[in-house]
Amino acid sequence: MDFVKPAEVLQSMVEAGENKARMNRMQMLIRGFLAGAILAFATTLAYTAVSQTSVGLAGALIFPAGFVIIILLGLELVTGNFAMIPLALLKRRVTWMSMMRNYCWVIVGHLLGCLFYAALYGLTLTKMGTDLSSPLIQTLIQTSETKTLGYQHLGTAGIGLVVIKAILCNWMVTLGAVMAMTSTSTIGKIVAMWLPITIFFAQGFEHAVVNMFVIPAGMMLGANVSIADWWLWNQIPVLVGNLIGGAIFTGLGLYAAHTWGTSSHSSSKLATIQGGRSGLTGTDSAQKVGTRS
Rank of each mutant, 00 (worst) to 15 (best):
G279M: 13
Q11A: 11
T182Q: 02
I199F: 15
A217C: 12
S98R: 12
A21K: 07
H207K: 02
L125F: 12
I273F: 08
Q142C: 00
M220W: 11
F200K: 09
L195K: 08
E8H: 11
A228L: 07
L175V: 04
R292H: 08
F205E: 04
R25Q: 06
V173T: 01
T182W: 00
G150I: 12
R93N: 12
T148N: 06
G74T: 10
F82P: 01
L140P: 11
N81K: 00
Y121L: 01
E206H: 12
T281G: 15
M23L: 14
M97L: 11
S183Q: 10
I141C: 04
R92L: 03
A180C: 11
F249L: 12
T283A: 15
L77T: 05
G176S: 06
A208W: 00
Q138G: 15
M13Y: 00
L29K: 05
G276V: 03
G204R: 10
A65F: 12
L34P: 09
V108L: 14
M172L: 15
V106D: 06
Q152D: 00
T262D: 07
G261W: 09
T95Y: 07
F205M: 12
D284K: 10
K5C: 01
L270R: 14
H265R: 06
A58I: 01
L73Q: 12
V214R: 09
V9R: 01
M179F: 15
R22Q: 09
E15A: 13
L125C: 12
V238L: 03
Q52R: 07
G241V: 01
T272F: 06
C114N: 14
M23A: 07
V55G: 00
G17Q: 04
A65T: 14
T44W: 11
M219D: 05
L115V: 15
A49N: 01
A177Y: 04
W260N: 03
L90Y: 09
G80M: 02
M84L: 14
N234V: 03
I30P: 02
V68Q: 02
V173K: 00
